[in-house]
Design a protein around this nucleic acid. Sequence first.
DNA 1: CGTCCAGTTGACCATGTTCAATACTGGTGG
DNA 2: CCACCAGTATTGAACATGGTCAACTGGACG
Lengths: 189, 189
Amino acid sequence: MAALRTGPIRFRRNQVIACEGDTADYVFLVVSGVVRSCRTFRNGDRSVVAFYLPGDLFGWGNETHSFSIEAASDVMVALIRRRGLSALAEGSPRLANFLRSVVLNELHRTQEHAATITMSAKNRFLAFLRDWSSRSGESKSIRLQIGHQDIADHLGIKMETLSRTITELERSGALARTSSPGVLRLMRI
Amino acid sequence: MAALRTGPIRFRRNQVIACEGDTADYVFLVVSGVVRSCRTFRNGDRSVVAFYLPGDLFGWGNETHSFSIEAASDVMVALIRRRGLSALAEGSPRLANFLRSVVLNELHRTQEHAATITMSAKNRFLAFLRDWSSRSGESKSIRLQIGHQDIADHLGIKMETLSRTITELERSGALARTSSPGVLRLMRI
DNA sequence: CGTCCAGTTGACCATGTTCAATACTGGTGG
DNA sequence: CCACCAGTATTGAACATGGTCAACTGGACG
C-alpha cells in the first residue's frame, strides 16, 4: 500500500501547488503559512476564493480541482491521498464524522464570505479582519502574512482601494499599522 | 421512533421556513419551487447566499441555522430529521457517501458564486444564468420563478441595475424577454 | 548604491446607486 | 367585464463609490 501521507512539502510564496483542472488525487493539510485557492480569468483578473491556515484540510473537489491552489506565503503543506483517506473513513464513523465537519465548516465560511458580496469595501475588509482574527486566534494585533493583492482579489476590490480603506480606518482610529510589515493593531473592530 | 420525514409542506412565496439562529433539527429537501438562503442586515440590505431547486437537500449548519431559509416562490419542502439521517448514515457507507457528495456539490457551487465577486454586473448575471440553466436543465429558454429583487440580492447588485443589465443584454441580442413573465429566451450566452 | 517589487497616494473616470416617476401584472370587488 | 389597487419591474437624471492610470515611496536584496 502506497503511503497515505508524504512528509510536509515546502512551497515558496506564489508557487503553484495544484492547477485548476489537475486530477485531485490528494487533499491538502496546511502545516504552516497561508494557502490560497483562486482562479485567474482571461482578462487577467483574479478571484481568490479562500485562504487556508495551518490546520486546515481542503481540496475535496470532484475528479479535478476547480481552482488553482497556490502558496500565499511561504508554506509547509502535507499531501494526503484522497482515496486512502476515503477508504479509511468508510471503516471509521469517527473519521467520517470529522471529515464531514471539516467540509461543513468550509461551506459555512464560504457562505459567510459570499454574504459580504453586497457590502462596501470598508465592510468587506472589516468582515475579513474579523474572520481572519477568529481563525488565526489573534485578536489584539493580527499578522497578515499575505500580500495586499491577495486580500483585494479575495474581497473583490482593487489593491488601491484596499490601501485607501486601511488608511481611512487608521485615520478613524479603528486600527493602526505597526512597524512590522503586515501586522495590524486592532483598536475597535 | 419519531418519523424521519414528514410529508412535504407547502410554503407561499416569501414565507419563512426557518430563521437564522433556529436550532437546526431538520434538513430540507426541495420538492417543487425555489428556496432561498439569506441574511438581512440592520440597515435593511440583504444577501441571498443561495437558491435551492427541486431535488436539492440542504440545511446542515451547525447547531443552529446560519441563514434564514425562505420560500423564493411557492414551494413544497420536505423536512427531514437531521439526527435520524445522521444515524442512518453511520450504518450505511452508501448513504454517508451520498450525503458527502451533496455537501461537496453545495460547497463547489458556493465557491463558484464567490468567484464572481470580482465581475461586472453583466458578467455576474451571465454566470447566474449559466448556473441556473445547468441546474434546472433548461437551456434554450429559462424560467426564473423568482423575483428580480432576489436575483439582485444574490448577485450583490441593485434591482435597477439588474433591470438595466437585462435590457442591455436584450438590445445586444444575447437574450429576449418573452410574453410569459419570468421566462427568458437565451440566444447566445 | 541601484534595482525590483509592494504598497501608497492623487486626479480623473466609469460603473453602479439613489431617488423619483412611470408602467406593468394579477387579484378583488363593483 | 371593467375599475381599482398593491406589489413588482422599468426607466431617467443626479450622485457616489470604487476603478484606472500614473507618479512616488520605501524596503529587501544583490
